[in-house]
C-alpha cells in the first residue's frame, strides 16, 4: 500500500489544461490545412497526382473527382494528413498548420479552399439543454483500423480526462445519447450498426470520427463497405483525421455542446 501511495506522489498531476490553454502540439503535427490559391499555377496537378485518396482536386467544389481544372480544394473528410500533397507542390500552395480544430457540422464544411475554417456549430437550445452537461456516447467500430478507436479510448485517460466535461462512453446504446462511428461501415457491420442506432433513444446524436467514417478514407471505392457512416445513419458531427488527435475530437465535442467560444 505504501508503495502505491509513494508512486502516486511521484506521478504528480497530469491532466492537460486544454481547452483553457493551447494543446501544445509539436512542430510536425499536421492539423488544419490552408490553401493559397494565388500560389497554385494553372495546369499543374502535382498534388492531385500524389494524393492517395483524391482528397485534393482542382474542381473547386471538392467533388472527389480527379479534377485538373479550376481552383484547388481539399476535402478534409477524405484527407489522411499524409503530407504527400505538400511535398509534391512546388509552390507551397498547400500547407498544414498546427491548428487542431477540424470538426464540422456539415459534410460540405469540410471542403477547404483558402485559410478560412468552417468550425462545428453548437446544437440548438433544446438539444443543448438535454446534452450540454451530460452526454453519454456509445462507440461503434464498423471497420475502423483501431487507431480512431485508440484515440477515443485515450480521451478517457488521465491526460484528456473526458469525464471532467460530463461526457462518457457507455456500454449499451440504450444508455446512450448518441453513437460515435468509426470505419467505412463494412457490409458485415452495417446491420449491427443499424440495430445499435435504433436502440439509442431519440433525440440522438451521431458523430463520424476519422477519414474512414466520413468518406471511406484509404478504402474509398472498395466494394466491401458502404462508404461512410452517413450512408447508414444521419451524421451530426464530422471529425476528420487519420486518426484525429484526441484534442481534435474533444474540440469537436465541446463545440457541438456549445461549450467553446467561437474561435
Amino acid at each position: 500500500m505504501i508503495d502505491i501511495i509513494k508512486n502516486r506522489l511521484k506521478q504528480g498531476y497530469r491532466t492537460s489544461k486544454f481547452p483553457d490553454e493551447d494543446p501544445g502540439l509539436p512542430e510536425r503535427f499536421r492539423g488544419r490545412p490552408v490553401i493559397r490559391p494565388e500560389l497554385c499555377s494553372a495546369g499543374c496537378t502535382a498534388c492531385v497526382d500524389a494524393c492517395p485518396t483524391l482528397a485534393i482536386g482542382k474542381q473547386g467544389d471538392g467533388s472527389q473527382s480527379d479534377g485538373k481544372q479550376g481552383p484547388l480544394a481539399l476535402d478534409l473528410g477524405r484527407c489522411l494528413f499524409c503530407n504527400e500533397c505538400t511535398a509534391a507542390c512546388p509552390e507551397g500552395a498547400v500547407a498544414f498548420t498546427k491548428d487542431h480544430r477540424l470538426a464540422a457540422s456539415r459534410r460540405d464544411d469540410l471542403i477547404v479552399t483558402s485559410d478560412e475554417a468552417k468550425l462545428a456549430e453548437s446544437l440548438g437550445d433544446e438539444m443543448r439543454r438535454l446534452f450540454g452537461r451530460s452526454l453519454k456516447l456509445r462507440q461503434v467500430s464498423a471497420g475502423g483500423c483501431s487507431a480512431c478507436e485508440a484515440e477515443l479510448t485515450a480521451l478517457g485517460n488521465v491526460v484528456f480526462d473526458l469525464g471532467r466535461f460530463g461526457i462518457q462512453f457507455v456500454a449499451s446504446p440504450r444508455h446512450a445519447d448518441g453513437l460515435v462511428i468509426t470505419g467505412p461501415v463494412t457490409r458485415n457491420m452495417s446491420e449491427a450498426l443499424r440495430i445499435a442506432y435504433e436502440a439509442v433513444p431519440p433525440p440522438r446524436l451521431v458523430l463520424a470520427v476519422g477519414a474512414c467514417g466520413i468518406s471511406g478514407g484509404p478504402f474509398i471505392g472498395s466494394e466491401d463497405h458502404l462508404g461512410d457512416a452517413a450512408a447508414v445513419v444521419p451524421v451530426d458531427l464530422f471529425i476528420p483525421g487519420c486518426p484525429p488527435h484526441p484534442v481534435t475530437i474533444l474540440d469537436g465535442l465541446l463545440r457541438l455542446l456549445g461549450r467553446l467560444k467561437r474561435g
Binding site: S141, A142, G143, G144, G183, P184, T186, R187, N188, M189, A192, C212, P218, F219, G221, S222, E223, D224, H225
Partner: peptide, 11 residues
C-alpha cells in the same frame, strides 16, 4: 470474425 473486412488485400 470478419466484421471488419474492408477489402484491404484486394485494394
Amino acid at each position: 470474425l470478419g466484421y471488419q473486412h474492408r477489402g484491404a488485400e484486394r485494394l
